[in-house]
Amino acid sequence: MPTLTPEMVPGLVAAGASCRMDAEVAPKFKVGDTVRARDINPLSHTRLPRYIRGRTGRIVHDHGVFAFPDTSAESGTHSDPQHVYSVRFEGSELWGSHANANSCVYIDLFDDYIDPA
């Protein structure tokens, strides 16, 4: 790859590098589905935080298809395209009786982070 020069900087900054992938991948879930985050504990990279694992939420939006970070961190390139969903978890589901009143967390979860609940 060519070394980044000052002339290339404005173009790179303005274009960025989206992790969205132009791949035909069928979604495994749809808006309204109730899902449970998987209880995974890999030594490798993952973007599924511990506080979400094993918890149940509801899909509110399908963001489309993105590279899967757990795989891309190993391959070094955008890999394993799959759907990413905005999933809503109620505060009480995450923090039990210690949750703030009337609060929730929205987090973006890949197909491989969730199962039907």
Binding site: F66, V84, N102
Partner: peptide, 14 residues
């Protein structure tokens, strides 16, 4: 407490 607080955790690429 009538106002719902929504926290957005930017864990993916959104």
């Amino acid at each position: 407490e009538d106002v719902e607080v929504r926290v957005w955790d930017s864990n993916a690429e959104l």
